[in-house]
Design a binder for these strands. Structure first.
Lengths: 210, 210
DNA sequence: CTTTTTGAACTGACTGGTCAGTGCAAAAAT
DNA sequence: ATTTTTGCACTGACCAGTCAGTTCAAAAAG
């Protein structure tokens, strides 16, 4: 019956079960897609009875929605921390962007399945969790947009840049490069990938020096 | 009594039906995903009986695979033409990249649903059409990689760039920016979006001039 | 010509299987 | 003592794929 128990954060047992279900669901859905993944499979992979899934989540869709919220929450936090820590260290906005690229890569390295699933769902329309997705997406992109906007204000970035579009392009750059890294050349190190993206960000691709 | 009519390539009727089915399938699958889209829906939207789908395609998966091949083929052709036409006009590799960005945007503007669906499926594993997808992906990315490699050879690009990774990042930049454009600010013009991406590509974001 | 035949293309009712979600009593954990 | 989990049988909707039958334009026959 408890609704949010006093201090020690909502009954550990339940939370542990939920976590197991998230983990099971995220890989299965990343591999197969939402509709092709059955509740029985999720329960089995989590090592839990089917009834438990429904004891913990109202429906398959709700499980998925909360998974999305949870995952993007982690990403957003991580991006924000990256930006703030460079600010504290007295770095400029370029450093902040660079740190956020790295934070993005670290996130994708740690949660590749979640990233896959997120990308696969992001531009779909007509789906139950569409609005949830829009909200969490905006939270994450807003962090990047914020840094860009501050950079324009303090003169570090050109006033001509299109903040939302550039933010989207940066996110896309990291996302797709990282997914390709994971899928097609997983032996590469994170530093390698980070260096390549840094170079691209700073326009050192068409650079005149060898 | 004819079996495949003399010259005029495989009965027009059949080809027209297939085309209608592609068009119906592409929007539905982009919106809902492969598994959530029923063959009945596809048939209905195409204005055709369900049996006709199976008369023309061996299965739902095969229909989808041929759709993928067809669509990526169009994109690849378009990218190649863009690169070649700048070459013929005596432009450098930066111009080629820029033209390819534009070609990508034009493609996405014309076939937004296909693009959506392609992105959503690209990083999935364990799916029937996985291998098909890898092949067509490589065809498209190879065009970008080719231009980058030539640019490195002729000294226009730094030798330090990581060709496959940079190619993936560029594709991602265009893809995500364009999908965001379509989804969240469709009123923007293609030229606008192109300009923003060009600026990013040429490192004129963190430029020192206002 | 006119009639008949042919066969590719198409139709839609039907089948067999799958799956989300339910119900509930008993067991385990806290 | 209460919350959480289990196990499992059950239901009803839904859906991929099938198949016997229809349509019709063009070819062959008369």
């Amino acid at each position: 019956m408890e609704s949010s128990s006093a201090t020690a954060g909502v009954s550990t047992r339940r939370e542990a079960t939920r976590q197991k279900l998230y983990e099971a669901a995220v890989t299965l859905i990343a591999e197969q897609g939402f509709s092709a993944t059955t509740v029985d499979e999720i329960a089995e992979r989590a090592g839990v009875a089917k009834g438990t899934v429904y004891y913990n989540f109202a429906s398959k869709s709700v499980l998925f929605e909360e998974l999305l919220r949870h995952g993007v929450g982690l990403l957003t936090t991580s991006l924000r921390e990256a930006a703030e820590s460079t600010a504290r260290a007295g770095g400029g906005k370029v450093d902040a962007l660079d740190a956020m690229i790295r934070a993005g890569l670290v996130f994708i390295e740690r949660y590749p399945a979640f990233t896959q699933l997120y990308v696969a769902e992001l531009w779909r329309t007509n789906r139950a969790w569409q609005s949830t997705l829009m909200v969490v997406r905006q939270e994450a992109v807003a962090v990047v947009e914020g840094v860009l906007r501050e950079g324009v204000e303090n003169g570090e970035f050109s006033e001509e840049i299109d903040v939302p579009l550039t933010a989207a392009a940066l996110v896309g750059m990291v996302l797709v490069a990282a997914l390709d890294w994971q899928s097609f050349q997983p032996e590469r190190s994170l530093d390698d990938v980070h260096a390549a993206l840094s170079r691209l960000l700073q326009g050192r691709v068409s650079g005149r020096r060898g």
